[in-house]
Design a protein around this nucleic acid. Structure first.
Length: 401
DNA sequence: TCTGGGGTCCTAGGACCC
DNA sequence: TCTGGGGTCCTAGGACCC
């Protein structure tokens, strides 16, 4: 059997650990720049606040003291604690996202799932739901039903007739609309559709999903963390950027971050891409473009990444626009490398050593490339970020006695 | 006024081959 | 008044996920 262990309203639940006053209040957590809603307590959901909704649209619905900027350092740390508890209980585990893990087990665990739930709550104060099914897709569906009951074991067919098809893992907005337009509104309707029709209209991915709904496993448990196939750093800016020099600084910053991510998984990249765009909600005078540059040799060397990222930027930069978003991403990622015949092994080793040293220093004292500007900072709105209680000595929770 | 960030996989269609 | 058949590889873009 598969089970999905899923943290309820995860970011909000993390905020509640250290501020119990938030319990039973409508609470939301916002994305970068305090732009969109990314987590909601049940009470906030009841107020009609939607996932992904722009904050300015719903700010009148909710008391400001219950609105938080995202605090990923905290959420990541709490997530790690939960995952390590799950790892102690199950050997077959796939960490699927910051707040979800799939596990695989034989029947004997079935009875103590409620205890596991209680145990995680006791250790971390985070409420979780556990859904169980014969396949990952069924477990995921069960975890949706478990939001009410805590634990749900998917063992009967009838229930599928009462669940909206959009709840299926792998059926998003577009497919939901497509299916509903054709009278298929419930999970059951999808499950009994013909294989050829599904494959023709929605491809082999959805066909696998439907097999899973029928109890035929098509998605295996991924126990290993695979190296990323693409690495991306991007930001939107509250205040748009018009000057090329400022764009160059940001692009250099992002290329630097991409380099760090590459090295941390021991990879090198073959291509570097730079993407810029203006405000996507302003249809007039909209401009977006992406430059793709093949690197002379695969690399993880930051100065090289910065050089070509800037080159990419000049290919697509058009004066006169106000840019809202920049992304730098690398593709063609490998773990082996073709040596450059024009570069000596000694020079190569020197670069590798330099990057190692830079990464090491950066862990203690942030240093940066001059290309990123004199004071490389992303000015982002994080007006109400809580303290990083579990990862910073100077932000520990204090109690007055 | 104000609209996130970071990923994966699949497919259609073009280029190219014999 | 007329231009084959069968295949591979690559890429852009679209779908999805949290």
């Amino acid at each position: 059997m598969f089970a999905l262990i899923d943290c309820n309203n995860f970011f909000v639940s993390c905020e509640r650990i250290f501020q119990p006053v938030l319990d039973s209040k409508p609470v939301i957590v916002l994305s970068n720049n305090d732009g969109c809603v990314v987590s909601r307590s049940n009470e906030a959901k009841r107020l009609g606040i939607k996932m992904g909704q722009p904050y300015f649209e719903c700010k009148d619905l909710i008391n400001k003291t219950y609105v938080f900027s995202s605090n990923f350092e905290l959420y990541g740390d709490i997530s790690g604690r939960i995952m390590s508890i799950i790892k102690k209980i199950f050997t077959d585990i796939e960490i699927y996202s910051i707040d979800e893990a799939f596990v695989y087990f034989k029947d004997k665990h079935k009875l103590c799932l409620r205890d596991i739930r209680t145990y995680i709550k006791k250790c971390t104060s985070i409420p979780v739901s556990i859904g169980v099914g014969q396949t990952k897709t069924l477990a995921k569906l069960a975890s949706f039903l478990a939001k009410k009951t805590g634990v749900y074991i998917m063992d009967q067919n009838d229930i599928l007739k009462s669940i909206d098809v959009s709840e299926v893992w792998g059926i998003g907005n577009n497919y939901t609309k497509f299916l509903k337009d054709r009278g298929k509104t419930t999970v059951y309707d999808l499950k009994i559709s013909s294989d050829s029709w599904i494959k023709r209209n929605m491809g082999v991915g959805v066909l696998k999903t439907v097999y899973e709904l029928r109890g035929v496993p098509c998605f295996a448990l991924n126990k290993n963390i695979e190296p990323k196939k693409g690495i991306l750093t991007s930001r939107s800016f509250k205040k748009p950027i018009t000057e090329k020099i400022e764009l160059e600084e940001k692009v250099s910053m992002f290329a630097t971050r991409v380099g760090e991510k590459l090295r941390s998984q021991g990879s090198k990249a073959s291509f570097i891409n730079v993407y810029i765009r203006t405000n996507r909600f302003n249809k007039e005078s909209y401009y977006s473009n992406v430059a793709k540059i093949e690197l002379p040799i695969q690399t993880d060397y930051t100065p090289e990444l910065i050089k070509y990222a800037k080159k990419g930027l000049s290919q697509i930069y058009r004066a006169g626009y106000s840019y809202k978003k920049i992304a730098v991403f690398v593709t063609g990622i490998t773990n082996s490398m073709q040596m450059n015949i024009f570069e000596s092994v000694r020079a190569y080793n020197k670069k590798t050593q330099l990057m190692k040293t830079v990464d090491k220093i950066n862990k203690k004292y942030p240093i940066f490339y001059a290309a990123s500007g004199i004071q490389p900072k992303l000015f982002m709105d994080k007006l109400n970020r809580s303290k990083r209680y579990t990862t910073r000595w100077d932000e520990l929770k204090c109690i007055k006695i």
